[in-house]
């Protein structure tokens, strides 16, 4: 465990952005998530770790109602974003997803130009009034995703022509462009090589000054490097949550310790 540097970073704001209470997720008759209670802090990176099939991705997807696209999936309990239950009937899941952006495991740029990829969200939500404003949003988003300098001369080249790491940063820029409050990342580095991974991790660290970031990861080193809060999932239960340094150095639950030291998973 010596390679696991847990960097002490001050969490500026401990106020919860998302609060989840008694969340259960069912796929038909099978229960995937059991009574999860968690607070996601603002302006910090929260990592979900746990062995494969533990429900951490499923829980992530409940936070922006991406599970709605799966017909047999049911979600019980309450998840509040800034005091409003996102599973309330009055909440339009489409609007919600503009506030809770998502970055996926595999880079999935649209078959459009780099510019159009980033402008996609602002265009469908009508966030800009004219071309100049849109240009500005695109540039700012690409800057936030640390991609601007690499692509500023070829904004109209296809996004699919970029390298894997650049594509993933493009997807982050695309998610950032709608000015979300929360950014969900589902194993964002699992399809990337080590150099691209390092770039994306650095980016995640920068993003927390503007957004609340939730990241699902298989790599404990990555969780230790980028997150301030960590939640450990096992068999659909949220076993333990707390400051990342505490989870990695002084886990309270024996299952957490077993996972971190490599005995289960």
């Amino acid at each position: 465990m010596n390679d696991m540097r847990t960097v002490e970073r001050a969490v500026d704001n401990t106020e919860a952005r998302i609060t989840a209470r008694d969340v259960q997720v069912w796929y038909g008759e099978a229960q995937a998530i059991r009574d999860v209670n968690i607070d996601i802090p603002d302006k910090a990176v929260t990592a979900f770790i746990g062995p494969s099939g533990c429900g951490k991705s499923t829980f992530l997807r409940t936070l922006n109602r991406m599970n709605d696209t799966i017909p047999i999936c049911r979600v019980l309990g309450t998840i509040e974003l800034e005091g409003e239950n996102i599973y309330d009937k009055r909440v339009d899941p489409v609007q919600l997803r503009a506030k809770v952006g998502m970055v996926f495991q595999k880079p999935n740029p649209f078959p459009k130009s780099i510019y159009d990829n980033v402008a996609y969200g602002p265009r469908i939500h009508g966030l800009t009034r004219n071309r100049a404003e849109l240009d500005e949003v695109v540039e700012q988003s690409l800057r936030k995703a640390a991609l601007w300098n690499e692509v500023k001369d070829r904004l109209h080249a296809p996004g699919t022509g970029l390298s894997g790491g650049q594509q993933q940063r493009l997807c982050i820029a695309r998610a950032v462009a709608t000015s979300p409050e929360v950014l969900l990342m589902d194993e964002p580095c699992s399809a990337l090589d080590p150099i691209a991974t390092a770039q994306v991790e650095e980016l995640i660290d920068e993003l927390r000054s503007n957004f609340s970031v939730v990241i699902v990861t298989h790599s404990m080193q990555q969780a230790a490097r980028v997150s301030q809060k960590t939640a450990f999932f096992h068999l659909g239960n949220l076993v333990e949550q707390g400051d990342t340094s505490q989870i990695f150095t002084n886990p309270k639950d024996p299952r957490t310790e077993a996972y971190i030291t490599g005995r289960i998973g």
Binding site: N64, M66, T69, K99, F104, Y120, R174, A175, T178
Partner: peptide, 17 residues
């Protein structure tokens, strides 16, 4: 690929968009 649709839904696009 489904990943393209997910990407679009994830930004808050409707099915028809």
């Amino acid at each position: 690929p489904q990943s393209l649709r997910d990407g679009s839904f994830g930004i808050g696009a409707t099915r028809s968009e």
